[in-house]
Design a protein around this nucleic acid. Structure first.
Lengths: 243, 243
DNA sequence: CCTGTTTAAATATCCTACAATTATAATAAA
DNA sequence: TTTATTATAATTGTAGGATATTTAAACAGG
C-alpha cells in the first residue's frame, strides 16, 4: 500500500545535516563551526533556513551562538544528541499506566524520605491528618477525598525534596486530566484507602522508612491495577511492581 | 559576588511566552493557534523571530505547522512540556542535589525494570555495550564517556516506560547544564565507573532486578556525594540513600 | 602599563517579496 | 439541484537584503 510520503522543510533537512555532521565528529565539542553565511552558501539555501535549524539546536543546548564570535558546539553536545536519538527510536505515547507507575515510584520513595528526614515538628502535621481521617470517616466522600489528597501532598512535602514536590504536582494534574477522559472509571473503596492512609502515617511516625515505602507502594498499586484492568495486556506487569 | 547576567534573545523570550501560554491552556491540544503574522503583531516583533521560536517547538513535536492552514498544538503537547519544561523556570538553579537525587531514584528503578521486562533481543543491546566498554578501556576519556552515556540511556530505554525516558532525558539535560556552570567539578575516576557499568549490566543479563537496582543506586550515589562535597550541609543525607 | 578608538566579523533582528500549499467560496456545467 | 472547476484569500516556506548589537583584535595615546 502507498503511504503518505514524509515531507521535510529545508530547515529540517539542514537540522539533520548538522546533527549528522556533529555525530561524525566534523566539529569537536567547544569548537567553532562555520558562520551562518558560510553554512548558507555550503547548503545553497538562505541564511534564514540555516538560522531556524541553528536556533533549534541552540534551544536544545547542543549549539551556543555568540554575537560577534560565531556558533560553537557545547561541551556536552554529543550527550544530548545521543539521548535525543534514543527518544526518537523508542518513542511511544506515554500512557496513563506509565505515568501512574512513575507516580507510585516517586511517592513511595517520598514516604521513605519522610520517615527518614522529617523533623518531629513536621510529623505533627501528619498526626493532624490522622485525626482528620478519623473524623471524616462519618463524613461525605468529598470530605474523605480532600483529606486523602492532603495526606498525599503532606508526605511528599515532608520528603524534603522540593523538586519531587513540583514533579508530582504536575504528574498528578496530568493523571487527573487523563482520567477525566474515561469518566466511567470504577470507583475505589474509600474506606480501604483510609485504612492504608493510617497504616502509612503510623509507619512514618514510628520512623520506619522501609515499611512506609512498602505500604505506600502497595497503596498506589491499587490505582495501577484499576488502570490495567481498563487497558488490556499490561495487567501482568502490575503484580511485579514490588519495591 | 557579581555573576554574569542572563541574556535572552527575542526568539528565546517568545519561546518561553508560547510555552507558558500552552501550559496555561490558552490553546487546546489539536487546536489551531494564531498565525505567525498575528503572533508577530501581538508580540511586536518580526515574523522571523516568531518563526525561530515556532520552528523549535516544531522540531520538539509540540507544534505542527502546515502550509496553507496554520500552526496547531500537537495532541501530546502538554505531556511533552510537562516532562521538559517542568524543570525550566522554577528549578533552573534550585538544587542540583535534589534533582540528582530524583534521577538516581528513577534510574535505579529503570535498572530494575530492565532486568525484569526487557526481551532477550533487547538484552543483546546491553551485551554490545559491554563489548564497547571493554574496547574503550584503552581509548580516550571522550570515548569512555560516550559509552557510559549510552549505557545509562539504554537501560532507561529497556525499562519499557516511555514516560521515564522523557523525564530522565530532560533531567539529565538539566543536570548537565548546571554542572557546566561549575566547570571545576572534580573529575570522577572513569575506570571505576566502567567497573560499575559492567556489574550492573551483568545483573540485568542475569535477570536479577533487585541486584541491578541496588548496584545502579550505589553507582549514582557517587555522583551525589560529589555534589554534596561541593555544597555544605547535605552530605549527611547521602549515606542514607539506600533502596 | 593602562585606556580609549577603530575596524572587521559575526550574530540578532527586521523588512519585503515571492513561492507553495490549502481551505473556502464563487462560478460554471451537467 | 448537484457536481466540477476555478478564483481567491490566508498561511507557511524560502529568499535576499538591510540595519543593529556584540565581540575580539589591532591600534594609538596617555
Amino acid at each position: 500500500m502507498l503511504r503518505p510520503v514524509m515531507r521535510k522543510t529545508l530547515s529540517q533537512t539542514i537540522l539533520c545535516e548538522i546533527i549528522t555532521a556533529i555525530k561524525n565528529g566534523l566539529w569537536q565539542p567547544g569548537e567553532r563551526m562555520p558562520s551562518e553565511k558560510e553554512l548558507a552558501n555550503s547548503f545553497s539555501v538562505s541564511r534564514n533556513s540555516v538560522r531556524e535549524a541553528i536556533k533549534t539546536l541552540n534551544n536544545m543546548n547542543i549549539l551556543e551562538s555568540r554575537p560577534g564570535q560565531g556558533t560553537f558546539l557545547s561541551k556536552d553536545a554529543i550527550r544530548y544528541i545521543l539521548s535525543s536519538e534514543l527518544i526518537e527510536d523508542g518513542y511511544r505515547d506515554a500512557s496513563l499506566f506509565e505515568i501512574t507507575e512513575i507516580r507510585a515510584l516517586l511517592e513511595a520513595q517520598s514516604a521513605y524520605w519522610a520517615a527518614d528526614r522529617a523533623t518531629d515538628e513536621e510529623l505533627e502535621e501528619l498526626k493532624q491528618i490522622l485525626l482528620l481521617g478519623q473524623k471524616s470517616k462519618n463524613g461525605t466522600i468529598q470530605e474523605q477525598d480532600r483529606v486523602h489528597y492532603l495526606f498525599h501532598d503532606t508526605i511528599v512535602k515532608l520528603a524534603n525534596n522540593s523538586f519531587v514536590v513540583r514533579l508530582l504536582s504536575s504528574i498528578q494534574a496530568e493523571i487527573a486530566a487523563q482520567r477525566s477522559k474515561f469518566d466511567d472509571m470504577s470507583p475505589i473503596d474509600v474506606s480501604e484507602l483510609i485504612q492504608d492512609q493510617e497504616e502509612i502515617i503510623n509507619f512514618i511516625l514510628q520512623r520506619k522508612p522501609e515499611k512506609a515505602r512498602e505500604a505506600m507502594n502497595k497503596h498506589l498499586n491499587k490505582g495501577l491495577l484499576l488502570i490495567a484492568s481498563n487497558v488490556s495486556g499490561i495487567s501482568s506487569r502490575v503484580e511485579k511492581n514490588k519495591l
